[in-house]
């Protein structure tokens, strides 16, 4: 009589099962890591989308994207002066953190500005071009340089390298169009347009 259960068969089945289990575990682990990496990436992207993209480095990082990576790894969210309170609130909403005030160690909120090169003083050293994170300066060696105001983020980085100090930051002209403002509690009027000018 043959035994109903062959030990060799059992062993084979056991090995097969073990191998399959290991394979499954491996695949699951791999998918888990990929997922986590993707999440991390999309988190960084989402954080970066909330940063003002001034690329000024005031946060202590080389630009907005590096700071976004750092925030995703737990860096404080209140280090970006160009973004001000709005950015901190939005970051807090995204990351479920309580908004904080801007960390004064990184600077204060300034109104939007653009760089301006006093052109007759420019010596064409190209130093500002190398400093500009968004290539908003036009010029060449020993030629006059100028700022493309529409592309300038107002990051300030070109001011310091200029050997003849001919770059200044100018505030953007105030917007004179009438704007609606949130009513202050207690002073709302029904029919009149409240505008700030």
């Amino acid at each position: 009589m043959y035994p109903l259960i062959d030990t060799a068969l059992i062993r084979l089945l056991l090995w097969a099962f073990l191998l399959l289990a290991l394979l499954g575990l491996g695949v699951t682990a791999m998918r888990y890591w990929r997922r986590k990496l993707a999440d991390q990436h999309s988190l960084v992207d989402r954080i970066n989308a909330l940063l003002p993209q001034t690329q000024c480095g005031a946060c202590g990082f080389e630009g907005c994207l590096p700071y976004a990576r750092a925030i995703a790894n737990g860096q404080a969210i209140n280090q970006c002066p160009p973004g001000g309170d709005g950015t901190i609130i939005r970051l807090g909403n995204l990351l479920n953190e309580l908004p904080r005030t801007l960390n004064p160690a990184h600077g204060v909120v300034v109104e939007p500005r653009v760089a301006f090169i006093r052109e007759d003083e420019c010596i064409g050293c190209t130093k500002c071009i190398r400093a500009c994170p968004v290539d908003a300066i036009l010029g060449g060696p020993k030629l006059m340089h100028t700022v493309i105001a529409r592309e300038c983020t107002g990051c300030d980085l070109c001011v310091e390298p200029c050997p003849v100090d001919c770059i200044e930051m100018r505030p953007l002209g105030p917007d004179h169009s009438p704007r609606w403002v949130l009513p202050n509690s207690g002073s709302g009027t029904r029919t009149s347009l409240e505008v700030t000018r």
Binding site: N48, P52, Q53, Q55, C64, L65, C132, P133, V134, E151
Partner: peptide, 16 residues
């Protein structure tokens, strides 16, 4: 408007 501007800055930064 700000978002569109930031997007253009971001692209320029990446290209830079």
């Amino acid at each position: 408007r700000h978002f569109e501007q930031a997007e253009s800055w971001r692209t320029r930064f990446q290209q830079h």
